[in-house]
């Protein structure tokens, strides 16, 4: 007699908690062969707005943490990902229908991506900032910092990259201290919730990463037009009618990244895309 398995309930991740969709809706997630895997929460407009509220509340502490601290916290995520690599690999194998070796390779790549970005926390400002030799008695420095709340459409239909695609867009946005609301791959949302569990048990403060599962076509417009969202990363929105999302984002001059095919590579530019450069002038005494 074999033991009867205990399946997991997959919910949303908002403000450090795991609520079901307030709409009470869910959708079926299957293997590529159509076998039932789970009922994922079908996030609603209200869930998206709750996620933005949670993200906004998290910005001050996360962006105000020292860069060294943020780097350690993000590195800790990589540590926990690594520790649960077998579980992620098994989940990916089922959900994407790939080989065990391919699934494990994807998890390894996700961990390495996370480590790469973690190491940028206390360096990107040195590389992208500047001391400015102005023609006058002033100390003058330009430094990038977080823009605030970043809404992301993770790569979709990312067979072979359901975890890696998510990490490739979430990690860079966290480096500077932004808080994130991410819409996971609709077809392969389970590893996104797995990642949320890693966040919840690492030292990432609640609200810094918020994960919505469901339909990007339904949720993204609410995030694109939300006045308390500072930046919109449409990496995975290529198959959506995405130009209206950019138009909606223009109402509050959001910083927008256009869709990108596949999984975005490691990129300092992706970090800087959700930062603002602040220039501070201070008078110098004339001695």
């Amino acid at each position: 007699m074999t033991r009867l398995a205990v399946p997991k309930t997959y919910k949303l991740y908002i403000g450090g908690r795991f609520p079901r969709s307030e709409s009470g809706r869910s959708y079926e997630v299957t293997t590529p062969d159509g076998a039932f895997l789970a009922n994922a929460s079908l996030a609603s407009r209200k869930d998206a707005r709750d996620a933005v509220v949670a993200a906004r509340a998290a910005v001050a502490a996360w962006s105000g943490a020292t860069a060294y601290n943020r780097g350690q916290v993000l590195y800790r995520v990589a540590e926990l990902l690594e520790g649960r690599a077998e579980q992620f690999a098994a989940e990916i194998r089922d959900a994407e229908g790939v080989s065990a070796a391919a699934a494990r390779a994807q998890v390894d790549a996700a961990v390495d991506t996370w480590v790469w970005y973690a190491g940028w926390c206390d360096k990107y400002a040195q590389v992208a900032g500047s001391g400015n030799p102005v023609a006058g008695p002033f100390f003058n420095i330009s430094v990038p910092e977080a823009t605030g709340v970043v809404a992301i459409v993770a790569p979709q239909e990312s067979a072979g990259a359901s975890l890696l695609g998510l990490v490739a867009v979430v990690a860079p946005a966290l480096v500077a201290g932004n808080a994130v609301v991410v819409i996971a791959d609709r077809a392969h949302p389970l590893s996104a919730i797995g990642l949320a569990e890693v966040m919840a048990t690492s030292d990432v403060p609640g609200g810094v990463v918020n994960v919505l599962t469901g339909s990007p076509a339904e949720i993204a417009p609410w995030l694109a037009s939300h006045a308390d969202v500072n930046a919109l990363d449409l990496a995975g929105a290529g198959a959506l009618d995405w130009v209206p999302l950019v138009v909606a984002a223009a109402a509050t001059l959001k910083r927008v990244q256009d869709p990108e095919p596949g999984v975005p590579g490691w990129s300092l530019q992706r970090i800087l895309a959700t930062t603002e450069t602040k220039t501070v002038w201070h008078t110098k005494a004339l001695l």
Partner: peptide
Amino acid sequence: LRAGVVWANAFNRFDPASPFGGYKESGY
């Protein structure tokens, strides 16, 4: 301060070596 240029004990100073531009609805 959520502003792209902050002048301390000065105001309205400009220089070609010094980046200028805004946060939020002041542009990008």
